[in-house]
Design a protein around this nucleic acid. Structure first.
Length: 663
DNA sequence: GTCTGCCAG
């Protein structure tokens, strides 16, 4: 195109050299982060002390900037800086951001490492990873030799993995010092809670406070106690809806999928009857099991003149951040798993939040502008809430944790340096279970057996690892890998409430009279038979996402089996071998049919019932094993498999000597 | 004849 120079010159066009503006902007953004003024102080503290605790609210920039500061200052001494995150998405997205800031490709200087996805190379010095990943690595290398700095981020979330890592990094640090090795710097980053607790545990480490970028939030308590939080949340929602300008979105915290779906329906019904000048309402449910496509709806920008209402479980507390939210309605409730180490049974219960959780929920209203939080409980009720959430490690089965610790060479698990110790009883139960599975020597030394060493290599519950190892003897590893993979992911069965009958009828063809495990195996075979066809999944109400995860897991397990030279046999249609394998890991979860037609658990002699969702619901086999007990209206066995009394006895003679099956 | 929150390896 020719420009006619006699014409008045057009508006000057601006050019910049390939991306300079972009990077200038990134640089400017980095400079404006609240953490920037304390950069030098921070580097100094880390150089002076083996451990530093950093307290900072969201938005301070600590997660992205601190590793870069330490790298630029050379504190890492040319070895790797690890930064752990409780969630995979966080590890991946943060590392991508930092790579961008460093003008480097992901996997060069900056990389991430999560299950099924490792972007790091020998060039990587800043490595974002899940806490679970670092924990698994430390089984092979308890001194964490490849790292000079370990940063444990989001420590306040107190995941099991972070809690175990606390002790592992402390021990690695001490041992490296004692052996005159290169020191291990530890940085613990947390939100504002439990500061003294953290500092005390980490040898009175210095604490650095960072300013965050949080807008003020008006917190309102209910004046009276509410008997029905569901109803109260609807009343509050429409109260706000009538008064607040459009585009100011509302986030409601409830407890579970079913509750949320029914609330969404009520809200839609009510809003369609509203008269007068109120904004249009867009109502979105949000929970982890929601198909990804529907989850995306939550992130779409609210159209002009509308208001988005998000009804969510606690996913929106930490895992998911939604822009546009100005109001939070907090039911004060959360669904939590409670584990009973005596009966070995799980139960899900709706319980009150901790104060820390309530604070976290409030914060979701002030990410971009001042906001409000409506609490559907009184201030007096709030005062009765626990200050902090009981750490997960005190609420679950510890068999896996104990096996990992022993595999790292920590034999005295009872005296392991936990920040908050699990009960001795819970540890004892785990040790006993591992002995029964043949993972630990049957004495007081807590020493791994050769089988135990192999079991620790699998990213599985020890009972499932045991099942995999047993497949060698019963020559059915292919089938077992399939079943174990399917058991270790979220359910591949997808049963929408309104099409429940239909879903069950369609899936009837996969049902096995030998139980749920064999049913799962049938489904997997059928899925493979149609090459993972999407339409087939829809027709048969199979959750394709979870099925794909199971296939990834299977591949990973297969690789570990190769390393252990396990033979890849198949048993064809002889499912007895498969069921015998299952018995070797789950014999302690067995039940016997009584004359009256009821079952009792052989470990506790307490009555148990077949869960209505099981393939065996209408059957009455004499002996079954089950994956888990769930206490609701009754004590239900879930995921059952038909077995012979003799198999039970053969798998653990000394165990059953006392509780000999009567049949 | 059920009622499962969330995350990780």
């Amino acid at each position: 195109m020719m420009l006619n120079t006699s014409e008045p010159s057009p508006k000057r066009m601006k050019f910049s050299q390939n991306g300079d503006d972009h990077y200038a902007k990134i640089k400017e953004e980095r400079f404006k982060l609240p953490i920037r003024p304390v950069k030098h102080k921070l580097i100094q503290e880390v150089q002076r002390h083996p451990t530093v605790i950093i307290i900072g609210e969201t938005g301070s920039g600590k997660t992205t900037q601190i590793p870069q500061y330490l790298y630029e200052a050379g504190v890492h001494r040319n070895s790797i800086i690890a930064i752990t995150q409780p969630r995979k998405v966080a590890a991946i997205t943060v590392s991508q951001r930092v790579a961008l800031e460093k003008r480097s490709d992901i996997g060069d200087l900056v990389g991430y490492c999560v299950r099924f996805d490792d972007s790091t190379t020998e060039k990587t010095k800043i490595k974002y990873m899940t806490d679970g990943m670092l924990l698994r690595e430390s089984i092979l290398d308890p001194l964490m030799k490849r790292y000079s700095i370990v940063i444990l981020d989001e420590a306040h979330e107190r995941t099991i993995q972070t809690d175990v890592l606390f002790g592992v990094v402390k021990s690695a640090q001490r041992q490296r010092q004692r052996n005159g090795m290169r020191p291990l710097k530890v940085i613990v980053m947390s939100a504002t809670m439990d500061v003294d607790h953290f500092s005390q545990y980490f040898n009175k480490a210095p604490v650095l406070y960072l300013e965050g970028r949080q807008f003020p939030i008006r917190v309102m308590f209910s004046k009276e106690e509410q008997s029905d939080y569901l109803f109260s949340s609807l009343v509050t929602l429409f109260q706000i809806h009538r008064e607040a300008p459009a585009q100011e979105d509302i986030l409601i915290f409830l407890t579970g999928q079913e509750e949320i779906e029914s609330a969404v329906k009520s809200i839609k019904d009510i809003s369609s009857t509203l008269m007068g000048n109120v904004p249009n309402m867009i109502v979105c449910p949000l929970y982890a099991a929601l198909p990804p496509q529907q989850q995306l709806k939550v992130f779409q920008k609210t159209p002009k003149g509308c208001r988005k209402v998000i009804v969510s479980t606690n996913v929106a507390e930490t895992s998911v951040t939604i822009s546009g939210v100005r109001f939070v309605i907090d039911s004060g409730k959360v669904k939590a798993k409670i584990y009973n180490s005596r009966g070995g049974l799980d139960l899900m219960k709706v319980v009150n939040l901790s104060q820390a959780q309530a604070q976290q929920r409030c914060g979701r209203a002030g990410r971009e502008a001042p906001g409000s939080c409506y609490r559907l409980y009184t201030e007096q009720q709030y005062d009765t809430f626990k200050k902090t959430t009981v750490p997960e490690i005190q609420r679950c089965n510890l068999a896996s944790v104990v096996l990992q610790l022993v595999a790292m060479g920590i034999h005295d698990v009872i005296n392991f340096d936990f920040m908050d110790k699990p009960s001795p009883e819970a540890i004892h139960t785990a040790v006993e279970q591992l002995k029964l599975l043949g993972a630990l020597e049957n004495n007081d030394e807590a020493k791994l057996t050769p089988a135990g060493k192999n079991m620790a290599a699998f990213p599985l519950d020890p009972r499932l690892s045991k099942v995999v190892l047993a497949a060698k003897d019963f020559e059915c590893l292919e089938e077992i890998l399939t079943i174990v993979s399917l058991l270790s992911v979220d359910s591949i069965l997808f049963t929408p409430q309104n099409k429940r009958e239909h879903a069950l009828a369609v899936r009837e063809k996969f049902m096995s009279s030998e139980g749920d495990h064999i049913t799962l195996l049938n489904i997997y075979k059928a899925y493979k038979g149609v090459q993972g066809n999407k339409a087939w999944c829809q027709e048969n109400f199979i959750n394709q996402r979870n099925m794909r995860t199971a296939i990834d897991v299977r591949r990973q397990l297969r690789e570990i089996c190769v390393k252990q030279s396990l033979p890849f046999n198949t048993c064809g249609l002889d499912t007895a071998s498969v069921r015998k394998c299952l018995v070797s890991g789950f014999f302690m979860n067995s039940a016997e049919l009584q004359r009256e037609g009821e079952y009792i658990s052989l470990s506790t002699r307490k009555p148990v019932t077949i869960h209505p969702s099981s393939a065996l619901f209408h059957c009455k086999p004499s002996y079954v094993i089950y994956n888990e007990l769930v206490q609701t209206s009754k004590c239900y066995m879930r995921d059952l498999c038909v077995v012979d009394a003799a198999w039970l006895y053969d798998s653990a003679p000394s165990y059953f000597k006392k509780k000999k099956p009567t049949g």
